[in-house]
Design a protein around this nucleic acid. Structure first.
Lengths: 341, 341
DNA sequence: TTGTAAGCGTTATCAA
DNA sequence: TTGATAACGCTTACAA
């Protein structure tokens, strides 16, 4: 395609190709004068090193892999975005690969993949980051990887994550600060590790504020709209119904808002509702949803950066912690009692 | 990484590397016996051809590019999924690249990109497919590309698309078949080419059924939840309010449902609501939204396939047309009048 | 039908 | 500090 090669640059600069290579790779031991001449020649010729040749000859591939699984398309968009930013800044490219769900197929797929394209490292978002077979193949081949928000296997190499417990704690504190004392909570699906963490944060915040966690105010859910609506039915029909409901994710929070709407409660005047995830729907509804934004893009950016800088060894501590953000929108407001008082 | 090379296979099979290359690339002129021997050897050694070496030596790169723009993250997930399926089946890889929004930056970025990594072709989803600067650079370098649902420039090479007008027509017909005769319509943002097409389909279906398109039943919108809600306020407060509302996208349809809910109308018993896009939120709400599913995945699959098969020349006719699907869910039901009759 | 030899455009080796 | 020259693993002429 591009007919300008390292030879052309070397010829124009009047040096050997090795010197050009040195300059372009920022290696030491090149006289400033030569360096300048090479750079000028490259600029003049509009030279861009050939990616395939580099990968073939060198130890680096200038390629970062993103292995994901079909399940979390929305989430993946953010991961991709963050990873790509880091890649672009470092002159890397991002190779996306969807991993087959079945153990055997997935394992074989990755083995073929790794045998066939040299990759500098792999980013593993959930739920792929928790697949033991994937980790095994990667480790076996010595391919560096960084996991995003893994649920376990914390001693199995570097990862980035956020503090779900603290986020739930802070969101609960936000509701308390608005004067709410009767706060309902809708738990997430029991299979997901974050469900327990978010519940924990809620309970701790309530206890810290000396508030009661009445058992009827804590309802089970499964992260779906319907389960949120069902939980809301139970919560809002209580004689001492809560003035605020904190759902473990946005889908369920929407369920709460729908039920509130139906039974004539205005959000946030009569009932405050908070979610978790800051999914796109949080901004689609009205009032817009107060929620927790996970640093998805930042985590992916960080993961890619670690890979680019060569994150073979585990980082300091138990992984890299990134900050969440409490996004206050229209669905939470002062407690009714407070407003009257 | 993978130390098994074509030489190893050739040695084990007792042939030259050229014969191995021929077999692996399915070239003709190889005796069946040798072919079998090579295949067996490759299998035994678990050989996988090196991607970078192939790209460097040959004319193909085994790499398909997907150039997108930040604006359409949800849509892009589907595009990616479809493109990847096609790539995987054909032993290709997918290289994702986000194109800078600014003209100059974007142009330079693509030029660098193409100079630097050999690519067999590029998939251009909206809105990148409508950027003249991008098309220009691609054409200039002779890089094959297939656009997905472009808004114009139809003589500028191959593309895939769906028939928005027909989809709107069919959805309107669905509502008519349920007995609705007073059908409201909420238009999309005037800047988007699909807005006019969807409106056209609606009007044609109404005329075909001999139904009135009263001006007060057609409301402007801008694809946002709020604009849908605002339009619904106007529609549902009419004395002769429609029994069904067809919104030009799902976000606006949700706005309609929210307003209906608030003023005490039950969906679908009192009011049917239909959307367009089958976005994730369509399944989050309750009742779930009747909508039009665009063949996003299929279009991307098709685009990638065309590229892999070498789609330099324009395909037959004005582009490749793919079918939409009318997804009937709970938000549409028999017209109230019909139900009573 | 098969094989030999010459690239492809880099990086790595090792001598100067 | 530099530069020949040999890999890297494959495809593509071109010969046999």
């Amino acid at each position: 395609m591009n007919s300008v090669t390292i030879n052309d640059v070397a010829a124009l600069a009047g040096v050997s190709i090795k010197t050009v290579s040195r300059v372009l790779n920022r290696e030491p031991h090149v006289r400033d004068e030569l360096r300048a001449r090479v750079l000028a020649a490259a600029e003049t010729l509009n030279y861009h090193p050939n990616f395939a040749a580099r990968a073939l000859a060198g130890s680096r591939a200038y390629l970062i892999g993103l292995y994901y699984d079909q399940s979390s398309l929305g989430y993946i968009s953010g991961v991709q975005h963050g990873a790509m930013s880091a890649c672009r800044e470092a002159g890397r490219h991002l190779l996306i690969e969807q991993i087959q769900e079945q153990d055997v197929a997935g394992r074989e797929q990755i083995e073929t993949l790794l045998a066939n394209v040299k990759i500098d490292g792999v980013i593993l978002p959930p739920p792929v980051c928790d697949r033991l077979d994937v980790l095994q193949v990667l480790d076996q081949r010595g391919t560096p990887h960084v996991r995003i928000a893994p649920a376990g296997q914390f001693d199995r190499g570097p990862y980035v994550y956020m503090d779900d417990r603290q986020a739930a704690y802070d969101m609960t504190a936000h509701l308390q600060a608005l004067g709410h004392r009767r706060i309902g909570f809708i738990r997430g699906h029991a299979d997901h590790s974050v469900s327990a963490l978010r519940y924990q944060g809620f309970v701790q915040a309530m206890q810290a504020a000396g508030l009661e966690v009445a058992s009827q105010w804590v309802q089970p859910g499964s992260f779906s709209f319907r389960s949120g609506a069902a939980a809301a039915e139970r919560l809002l029909n209580l004689s001492d119904r809560p003035t605020a409901v904190f759902a473990s994710n946005d889908d369920m929070a929407l369920g709460v808002m729908a039920v509130a709407n139906r039974i004539g409660l205005t959000v946030p005047d009569d009932l405050s509702v908070a979610g978790f995830d800051d999914s796109p729907i949080a901004q689609v509804v009205w009032p817009q949803l107060t929620t927790v934004r996970q640093p998805v893009i930042e985590m992916a950016y960080e993961a890619a950066s670690m890979l680019i800088q060569g994150a073979q060894s585990a980082p300091d501590g138990p992984g890299r912690l990134l900050d969440f953000t409490i996004i206050v929108r229209g669905s939470t407001g002062p407690s009714p009692r407070e407003a009257l008082g």
